[in-house]
């Protein structure tokens, strides 16, 4: 593009229209890639954890979620770096902050609950006799259910921000999957998480990328 000062009104409007359309397209181009990466990662981890817990009988394998989260943040960082020339927009920022909040909270909740559970067990076992502890009211906090419902919520918000009905539907289905999770225990629990990761992350991510690449 040269420095041409003899523009007609039509040519000026054409430049404005093209430029605005282009920047709007680029703002959301590849915006679905982090969702795809997280969807694959969560679905595979849930499947792997379910399989290992079933075959070994030890809940130790649930700790695999922590390295998975660090791996996910690493992949996210790589994706952001790779598409660094994408312009920054309020839409991209909102979607980014929604998922960053989800990442922080979904990592903090299991850590805090696990620490609190062990601290409480240690404290009460020193203060009370075992039969007294067994009589105490115990509140079960469904960590996985809460995280999966949050995931559905974040996907639905993303759908509203990007004005995409498929993503909104995926988010609502994922949140319902979270509610179903509250009634399921054991290995099927991990199968529901795999399903939610596919419906709430992978599919919306693919839809977003296809939609904005075509645009």
């Amino acid at each position: 593009m040269e420095e041409n000062n003899n523009l007609t009104a039509e040519r000026s409007l054409e430049i404005i229209r093209k430029s605005i359309e282009q920047s709007r397209r680029d703002m959301v181009k590849n915006a679905g890639s982090p969702l795809i990466a997280w969807g694959i990662l969560v679905a595979l981890t849930a499947w792997l954890v379910g399989l290992l817990v079933k075959h070994t009988g030890t809940p130790f394998w649930y700790f695999l979620w922590f390295p998975m989260m660090f791996l996910g943040f690493g992949i996210n960082h790589y994706i952001n770096k790779r598409f660094h020339v994408r312009p920054r927009s309020i839409i991209g920022d909102i979607v980014g902050y929604v998922w960053l909040s989800f990442g922080i909270i979904s990592m903090a909740i299991p850590l805090v609950m696990y620490t609190a559970k062990h601290w409480a067990w240690h404290y009460f076992s020193q203060q009370y006799a075992p039969d007294e502890i067994l009589k105490m009211p115990i509140i079960h906090f469904p960590v996985t259910t809460v995280i999966v419902i949050m995931l559905g919520l974040c996907t639905t918000i993303t759908g509203f921000v990007l004005k995409d009905n498929w993503i909104k539907a995926g988010g609502i289905m994922a949140a319902i999957g979270g509610a179903v999770l509250a009634t399921i225990y054991g290995q099927q629990n991990m199968q529901v998480i795999s399903f939610v990761a596919v419906v709430g992350l992978l599919v919306p991510g693919i839809i977003m990328n296809l939609k904005y690449r075509k645009a």
């Binding site: 404005i16 093209k18 430029s19 605005i20 703002m27 312009p87 920054r88």
Partner: peptide
């Protein structure tokens, strides 16, 4: 025009 709809580029 490119900068109008983005926060920064």
């Amino acid at each position: 025009s490119l900068l109008i709809s983005v926060e920064e580029a």
